[in-house]
Amino acid sequence: MAEQTASTKTVKFIITRQDSPDAAAYVEEFELPYRPGMNVISALMEIQRNPKNAKGEKVAPVCWESNCLEEVCGACSMVINGKPRQACAALIDKLEQPIRVQPMRTFPVVRDLIIDRSRMFNALKRVKAWIPIDGTYDLGPGPRMPEKKRQWAYELSKCMTCGVCLEACPNVNDKTDFIGPAAISQVRLFNAHPTGEMNADERLDALMDDGGIEGCGNSQNCVRSCPKGIPLTTSIAEINKQTTKHLFKKWLSV
């Protein structure tokens, strides 16, 4: 049966590891028994169960981050065969071997494949990616959102802050302070909301500050890489339009 033929088959991994944030990175190879339907996370779990490298030496298990295992939480982003993506959705059967796994180096590496995505959450705070509804009394229901608008806005709301678009962007690096595509798309989402729209200018002002939307260089890798298929470049162009209008409005009204 299939299990018997599969038992002799192995999967080869080349993993870039790092013991601590300041330690030097090194490469370690692993060879695991193949199981049908396995993905990169289940392979990492296998290494955790039996932490031996390809030479048979016992090593510290590879560290990684993951939660939902269904590509909605954004925690298990890593570079797999050169492309940043969610490890839980990276099926071994569809990957070329040996499978090279690296951390997303655009972010500070904590250990092995664990990265620190704080900058993305700080970016969301900076652009006020929320809808203020609190008052000292019940403010009542807000204006309704047209169904047609809700449909495309829903696509933007799928963003899971995974960081893949920042990793794919040639303008997010240590020489720039570019905020990255994700937060810009969130500004479009919250500025589209009928209640969120009431604070639209604050979000645009945040993106018109240093390191804001001007950092985009139109390489458009983000939209090709987004695991959720979010139209990031449409969001960027739309926010370009909104900031341009906002700029002229500000100039001409003082």
């Binding site: 492309k83 794919a168 303008n171 390489s219 890798n221």
Partner: peptide, 14 residues
Amino acid sequence: QAKPNNGRFQYSRN
């Protein structure tokens, strides 16, 4: 300021 990554992302826009 650019950090080109055309080896990894060989798209025409890139």
